[in-house]
Design a protein around this nucleic acid. Structure first.
Length: 822
RNA sequence: GCCGGAGUGGCGGAACUGGCAGACGCAUGGGACUUAAAAUCCCAAGGGAAUAUAAUUCCCGUACCGGUUCAAUUCCGGUCUCCGGCACCA
């Protein structure tokens, strides 16, 4: 135990609890609906209540709190709520080990986290807390499901779905990362199952389009969403099958290459394959190949350098533009779920087709010539995928491929050969889960009436507590006969409930609306109030939600907007994604043993130190390495601030300062501007904090000789306290009181700078000769350009550098520099 | 491969609209206080070179190569590396 307790530089352990209580008493963060001030909705992504919080989590809340407190001082009516995304697998998995019910452990974790948030000095309107695992909340999650169901946007279908064998449940596409479960890293298998989906694809185009409205979202998040939605425009072309009376449809983005389509490839899973090979001699071999491909899991199938393999179906189709008979193949590189599961192959102008054609000796024909170097199908080593001049393309020969694209598409549409079509990568959102700790899906199956939604008046469908929740691949709710067996709401005959629960991302896709009327038991939210407060002015959270939560929330908002429940179509006007805090080069986690707990640090240095360091660590949007010595530096600074402000506590503000103090006053006002700009801009708290530090350093350097000087220092002290209040609220309150103020510092208005104070009498001019700094001189600020030039040329050092050469040109940047060209 | 972002001291990082590169902090070195240490406070500091230890002065330096400009971390062209997303998507 040779860890030394640092000297107590100021009584943080006394003042912090004191002010936390005071804010509560004063209801600093409670929003009054009738407040006339302009609204500001500052929202931090609500957390999953796992174990205790670490300093990495803290960054999120500290940033949000700094923004809220700043906006309060700017005169806004700030709504800063907090809740808990409380359903989910971790609690359920823990329960399997510890035998503690998920509800018990979740609620206990919530209590623990609230204490931690409190100790950090984070202010929320706790009267608005939402907890997604409680019936008064999930009742309305179920209501949202019903609304989507009514609109045809929630549906059940049989399909190939992602299955995690460890979590024993299906997963949404968004929850599969590199072919593995995002939660437990188990390689995801595919299964044919009947599952519930939300039809997010119906909104694909709008979700993509409206990204353009989100000017205050980080570019990378918008890019990620755009990539995920994955729009591509092309043409769907019909290829007649030889000896059959049906056609196969191919989707292509390169309709300009149609004359080079020398064969066709189907996914092995394509529904027509069985029919096509029913009578061919080599049927057995083809079936074996299909079995082989089907047996591969997602990773094997989509891995980067998988050898392209295929089989000839011994059948032919007709290229509708050349009227040639072309062979039909199946191959592992054609995916059943994208486009039509059937592609036209143009080996000369598509690298995959090229490799496949070379392997199986399929014909190649150049139809777009490379303008730089003429192509020859016999000698080319790889496909040419660029633009060029059309060749071997019937009536389109000689045209540029860009132009031919539209001409061919038009021609096909006129002749009913094909039609323009758009494909998205985005798939519908699979929302059912075979697990216990989630909101039950409000559906009843009746033998007579079919699928019957639970009537709104019967909501919520309560999640029963007495359930043995072993994951078995079937929802644990099936265990509870009282839950499953019900009477049909339509015909009253015995019926069965849906036993699956909803993906927790459904819970979190609408919580930001519930904060506005968290206790309303008549409706999920009050449209009038929501329309007044939304969109959220500032949303703050981790970039890991760039696709999942943010895409789902945008989708649900658009649905609610179409249903006229809300009058806006994007929920979050501004988004800020903070970087992760790293320790020893890795993300903090219990298993790595690199978790930094705030509790000990708060005990040793106080919450303000932890807050200040967290904000000072680096640009908040970037990842940052936690450094314990850096924390001490922040603590030292607060000690310096404390010492300085308490020292000038009984000095008075009076009159003008002496000449020497003018510079300090100027700096003070410059820093008001700097901190304000940082807070209004990109939340660069690190530079805001550093300029506050600079001002403190200057104050220490300044020697106050006269009462006027003292008055300038006193003004600087007041401003320092006001400017640092959003970052280090406890010490700021205490110092503010020490300066003789009765009101909370957060009831004061944010300081504004006096532009007169920013002006200087004298300025330092940098003198360059040929762009290199050679001298500097101090001149009156209002000096004319002519006088300045004259003075510069008279300077001894300058003359040495000029060395008798003539000055061709003198560039004068007002108030900054003079550059002499010789 | 496509899309987005980044590359600056020993480290985290700063630099408005092209105008003194390295603010602020950490680590480091020196000093004060102390019997001593820790803590605290004060001072120094990109690298290199010259002079006499100094004051001082010069040169080199923002991933690399080139360009525009009186002047480039900033603008333009090219190259490399790293991070993130998508990817056998037709």
């Amino acid at each position: 135990m040779n860890q030394t307790q640092p000297e107590r530089l100021y009584p943080f352990n006394e003042i912090e609890p004191k002010w936390q209580k005071a804010w509560e008493k004063e209801k600093l963060f409670q929003v009054d609906a009738d407040d006339p001030r302009p609204k500001y909705y500052c929202l931090v992504m609500f957390p999953y209540p796992s174990a205790a919080l670490h300093v990495g989590h803290g960054r999120n809340y500290i940033i949000g709190d700094a923004v809220s407190r700043y906006k309060i001082m700017r005169g806004f009516n700030v709504l800063s709520p907090m809740g808990f995304d409380a359903f989910g697998l971790p609690a359920e998995n823990a329960a399997l080990k510890t035998n503690i019910h998920p509800k018990t452990s979740t609620l206990a974790n919530i209590d623990r986290m609230k204490i931690q948030l409190h100790q950090w000095g984070i202010g929320y309107d706790w009267a608005r807390q939402v907890t997604s695992c409680l019936p008064d909340y999930y009742k309305w999650t179920q209501w949202i499901f019903l609304k989507l169901y009514e609109k045809g946007l929630a549906y059940k279908k049989m399909g190939t779905v992602n299955w995690c064998s460890s979590c024993q449940t299906v997963l949404a596409n968004e929850q599969v990362v590199d072919g593995a479960c995002e939660r437990c890293d188990t390689v995801v298998a595919t299964k044919e199952l009947e599952q519930w989906f939300f039809k997010i694809t119906a909104y694909a185009d709008r979700l993509l389009q409206d990204l353009e409205l989100l000017n205050n979202w980080p570019e990378r998040v918008k890019t990620m969403q755009a990539n995920w939605i994955g729009k591509s425009e092309g043409v769907e072309i019909e290829f007649p099958v030889v000896d059959e009376n049906y056609k196969l449809r191919c989707f292509t983005t390169r309709v300009d290459t149609i004359f080079g389509a020398t064969y066709m490839v189907l996914a092995p899973e394509h529904p027509k394959v069985a029919e096509l090979i029913a009578k061919v001699p080599g049927r057995k071999k083809i079936e074996e190949f299909i079995q082989k491909v089907r047996g591969e899991d997602r990773i094997e199938r989509t891995a980067e350098n998988v050898e392209k393999e295929g089989a000839f179906l011994e059948r032919y189709a007709v290229n509708p533009m050349t009227n040639e008979k072309i062979p039909i193949w199946i191959a592992n590189y054609v995916l059943p779920e994208y486009g039509t599961g059937c592609v036209m192959a143009v080996p000369t102008h598509d690298q995959r087709d090229f490799m496949f054609a070379k392997k199986y000796h399929l014909p190649l024909r150049v139809v777009i010539d490379n303008p730089k170097e003429s192509l020859d199908a016999k000698t080319m080593k790889e496909a040419y995928e660029g633009e060029g001049v059309m060749v071997n393309s019937g009536a389109f020969t000689g045209k540029s491929s860009e132009k031919a694209w539209d001409l061919i598409a038009d021609f096909m549409e006129r002749g009913n050969i094909g039609s323009r079509s758009v494909n998205f990568r985005l798939r519908d959102w699979l929302i059912s889960r075979q697990r216990y700790w989630g909101a039950p899906i409000p559906i009843i199956y009746c033998k007579a009436c079919g699928t019957v939604p639970v009537p709104e008046k019967d909501l919520p469908v309560i999640l029963p507590e007495d359930v043995k929740f072993r994951p078995t691949g079937v929802s644990p709710l099936k265990d509870n006969e009282n839950f499953e067996n019900v009477s049909c709401p339509k015909c009253a005959r015995p019926a069965k409930r849906e036993v699956d629960t909803m993906d927790t991302f459904v819970d979190s896709s609408w919580y930001y609306l519930r904060y506005l009327s968290p206790k309303d038991d008549k409706q999920p939210f009050d449209s009038k109030i929501v329309n007044r407060w939304l969109p959220v002015d500032q949303y703050i959270g981790g970039v890991e939600h760039a696709i999942l939560h943010l895409l789902y929330s945008r989708f649900i908002t658009k649905v609610l907007s179409d249903l006229k429940w809300v009058n806006f179509s994007e929920p979050f006007a501004r988004l800020f994604t903070q970087g992760m805090i790293i320790k020893d080069g890795a993300k903090m986690s219990k298993s790595k043993g690199n978790v930094v707990s705030p509790d000990a640090l708060i005990g040793k240095f106080g919450a303000d130190t932890v807050r200040l360091y967290t904000l000072f660590i680096g640009p908040p949007e970037k990842d940052a390495e936690w450094n314990d010595r850096g924390v001490e530096g922040s603590y030292r600074f607060l000690g310096r601030l404390w010492r300085f402000v308490t020292q000038v506590g009984d000095w008075k503000i009076s009159g003008e300062g002496s000449v020497s103090s003018k510079e300090l006053r100027r700096q003070t006002h410059e820093i008001i501007k700097k901190v304000t700009d940082d807070l209004e801009g990109d939340f660069h708290f690190n530079t805001a904090v550093s300029s506050i530090m600079e001002l403190v350093n200057s104050c220490y350097q300044f020697e106050a000789k006269t009462p006027e000087d003292k008055s300038i220092l006193r003004e600087a002290a007041e401003i320092l306290v006001l400017l640092s209040a959003p970052f280090v609220p406890h010490i700021a309150e205490e110092l503010w009181q020490g300066l003789g103020h009765k009101k909370s510092v957060f009831r004061e208005s944010w300081p504004t700078y006096d532009s007169a104070a920013l002006s200087r009498d004298e300025i330092e001019i940098v003198i360059q000769v040929l762009g290199r700094v050679r001298a500097r001189m101090t001149v009156p600020a209002n000096i004319s350009e002519e006088d300045l030039k004259k003075k510069v040329l008279e300077d001894k050092k300058v003359q040495e550098w000029l060395d008798g050469k003539t000055v061709k040109k003198a560039i004068v940047v007002p108030k900054k520099l003079v550059n002499l060209v010789v």
